[in-house]
Nucleic acid binder design. Structure first.
Length: 597
RNA sequence: GCCUCGGUAGCUCAGUUGGAUAGAGCAACUGCCUUCUAAGCAGUAGGUCAUGGGUUCGAAUCCCGUCCGGGGUACCA
């Protein structure tokens, strides 16, 4: 049992014994002891004053005395104002380290046969353009949430819904048909998703030009936007696609394949993957069927123009369109179909959608709609809503060329990692393959940590010039600490020193050493908490503070230079265990840690 | 307009179910490599926690108002 829990129970016991009152353990507040005060943990005594009917100091004294007398682990105490600071026996900390050091799955809950199955949807790209910075945040969050869910003993299915149909891909298709000159990824050497994205941009250029010309000829802007030849042609193409016109379908398949091949490379570089990928071209018809069923059952209604709507005003929401007047489906229709297919395919206990907060309303509506359609899991779906990534000059706008491309960004960062590593020159003796692998680990570590350390709910700012740092509160700093420890361990092994996990109980631990064990002991709680509130940031911040503390210890204590063998052994075990937790925690963020850097 | 989320150091961010003197990093300045990796460590400086009230032993945290900003409110996705 964790020491916090033990102390809480004993405080409850003390309240009963001293003041004859019954309280719940949840009423006992325990916090970290201030740095400038001696003690390992602090009990807040204010909540108990109404039981003791005495001053804070006196109540603290009485509780402290009871705890030292009745709990072996509590060696001593002090009271400052209403705060009871407890000093915990050193042997306790040693035993914590021993169990952490020998537990391969320290901090993780193991999945059981009846563990819940959680499905996480993330990434969810459109097939008309390559992935950008916003997608990166989504992918990193989705992957990390998945790892955290697993670490909390759940079963996981990672899924992706690819939006492969609709007017957007038709725009790229039309532009390629008109001005593409038969270009392919092979003929141009351009990555498929980028090539298709280029035609999307080209479409927009022509479209804008056409609008301008029409407006000059005296047409209103609204009319011009509807009647420009390009958009008319793209719409026509979409209709043909829905009618399964062979020529259009073939072009669609060809261009989508280019995009998928491109996405696969980006996903691989980012280190994310999926167990099951759905395509909207497969799910939108299922969604339509569901909407028609809802219509038949009177859950939805049809207007005179044949469009189908859901009236959610009684649920505190608005009216929502589900099928257009021409019978084509909208975003919501597709999501309904996708949800149905997924629950047909898997026995899902919990569904999590990793989607930006601009769609909060959409998921509120989806939840109600699924519920109305008779799916009892509708209400339980969880929208993991994250904030946008902003650039120094505001939002990313593809038309203004301010989009930070995912592939470019990763490549640039790998280049920075390479330069930095070469300058520092610590990788002598590595093969080219090992070098490149290390550069990539560092570059991706920097990028991933940067994006995951901030609270997912909040918008974040990404400054391409400044955001990617390798010093301070960064991924590489954490990776560096891991490499440092591994280096010491390698040297120890070379010297023939073997680790013993049976620690000498007579050791005299320094303050920093005890602090470090205390920090280690928090890891399982942090993993649990991160799982409860779906927050990779919690893991990131924890690992950072652990590593920060370790570096202070490393600076002030020698490890291999220590002559006392049991002290040296203790420090090695401590260091190794910290390296393990760093590796484990970074793993939850999808970040690798190098042996050398 | 209505709904919703946010505002903490020059900048980027932490800050536990309300708890002690609000913390990191970056940027600036100053020290520390003959010794286990200096991508490190230590120090200086930097704050009206947007703002005005309220709740209480105690508020960055909870409630109300105001100001500022993001997002949503589409037969876009």
């Amino acid at each position: 049992m964790h020491i916090d829990q033990i102390v809480k129970e004993k405080v409850v016991e003390a309240i009963g014994s001293l003041y004859g009152q019954t309280v719940d353990t949840s009423a006992v507040q325990i916090q970290n002891t201030r740095k400038d005060v001696e003690g390992d943990m602090t009990v807040v005594v204010f909540p108990f004053l109404r039981f003791s009917k005495k001053a804070p100091e006196q109540t603290g004294e009485e509780l402290g005395k009871y705890l030292t007398d009745n709990v072996d682990l509590v060696e001593n105490f002090s009271v400052i104002k209403g705060f009871l600071n407890l000093m915990i026996a050193q042997n306790y900390w040693l035993s914590v380290l021993e169990s952490a050091a020998t537990d391969d799955t320290f901090g993780f809950a193991q999945p059981q046969k009846d563990s819940p199955l959680v499905m996480v949807e993330y990434s969810s790209p459109n097939t008309n353009k390559p992935l950008h910075l916003g997608h990166i945040r989504n992918n990193l969050l989705g992957y990390s949430i998945g790892e955290i869910i697993k670490a909390n003993g759940n079963k996981l299915v990672k899924t992706n819904i690819v939006n492969d149909r609709g007017i957007h891909i038709c725009k790229s298709m039309y532009a390629w048909q008109q001005w593409g000159e038969g270009k392919t990824p092979q003929s141009t050497g351009i990555k498929g998703d980028h090539l298709v994205g280029d035609f999307y941009v080209l479409f927009d250029k022509h479209y804008k030009q056409e609008i301008n010309e029409l407006v000059e000829q005296g047409m209103s802007k609204e009319d011009a936007e509807q009647k420009a030849p390009s958009i008319v042609a793209a719409r026509d193409m979409l209709r043909k696609w829905e009618a399964k016109d062979p020529e259009v379908i073939e072009l669609w398949q060809t261009m989508n394949q280019w995009v998928y091949a491109g996405f696969d490379l980006t996903y691989k570089e980012l280190g994310v993957d999926f167990d099951k990928i759905y395509h909207e071209s497969d799910t939108y018809l299922v969604g339509k069927d569901e909407v028609f069923r809802g219509l038949k059952e009177g859950v939805f209604y049809q207007r005179e123009d044949q469009s189908v709507w859901a009236d959610l005003t009684k649920d505190g929401l608005d009216e929502k369109i589900l099928l257009r007047s021409d019978g084509t489906s909208v975003y919501m229709t597709q999501d309904i179909g996708t949800a149905k297919l997924r629950f047909d395919d898997y026995k899902i206990d919990k569904m999590i959608y990793v989607v930006g907060n601009e769609q909060n309303y959409h998921f509120q509506v989806l939840s109600v709609l699924l519920d109305k359609l008779g799916y009892d899991w509708g209400k339980g779906l969880h929208h993991f809503s994250y904030g946008m990534v902003e650039l120094p000059h505001g939002k990313m706008k593809s038309r203004e060329g301010t989009v930070v491309d995912a592939d470019d960004l990763m490549a640039e960062m790998i280049e920075v990692a390479r330069k930095t590593s070469e300058e520092l020159g610590k990788l002598e003796g590595y093969t080219d393959e090992e070098l490149n692998r290390t550069y990539k680990i560092i570059a991706l570590g920097a990028l991933k940590y940067f994006m995951l350390k901030v609270d997912p709910k909040k918008n974040m700012l990404f400054n391409p010039e400044e955001s990617i740092d390798f010093n301070g509160n960064t991924g590489p700093f954490i990776q560096y600490t891991h490499a440092r420890i591994r280096s010491v361990i390698r040297k120890a092994t070379k010297k023939g020193i073997q680790l013993s996990f049976d620690l000498d109980s007579t050791l005299n631990l320094s303050e920093k050493e005890q602090e470090l064990i205390k920090s280690l002991s928090l890891y399982p709680t942090v993993v649990k908490e991160a799982g409860d509130i779906y927050s990779p940031a919690l893991i990131a911040n924890y690992i950072y503070s652990l590593v920060k503390e370790f570096n202070q210890f490393y600076h002030d204590h020698t490890i291999l230079g220590e002559e006392n063998e049991s002290v040296r052994n203790f420090r090695l075990v401590l260091s190794q265990t910290i390296a393990d937790v760093v590796k484990s925690g970074m793993g939850l963020l999808g970040i690798e840690v190098p042996e050398r850097m």
